[in-house]
């Protein structure tokens, strides 16, 4: 099952572990030991989360992230 959170879905076949998503969406995305994203559900601040989710989707050079929900 591809990794996903309430807001974000990830196509792991597109992801190259660049990591820009984690930079722009620290409340939602953490990088694992290999530099690949772990998607979390945000705790509080839904407006901040929505903004960060949009930024992460735009930031990915491989268009690996998409909106969910």
């Amino acid at each position: 099952m591809p990794a996903e959170s309430k807001r974000l879905g990830l196509d792991p076949t597109r992801c190259e572990g660049v990591g820009l998503c984690a930079v722009v969406a620290p409340a939602l995305i953490e990088l694992d030991r290999w530099g690949f994203p772990l998607l979390h559900n945000e705790k509080g601040h839904p407006r901040r989360a929505a903004k960060q989710a949009r930024r992460a989707i735009r930031a990915c050079p491989h268009q690996a992230l998409h909106q969910r929900g």
């Binding site: 792991p12 076949t13 992801c15 190259e16 572990g17 694992d32 290999w34 530099g35 690949f36």
Partner: peptide, 9 residues
């Protein structure tokens, strides 16, 4: 080998 965690893990 398409997905990082599988390819590396």
């Amino acid at each position: 080998r398409q997905c990082g965690p599988c390819r590396l893990g």
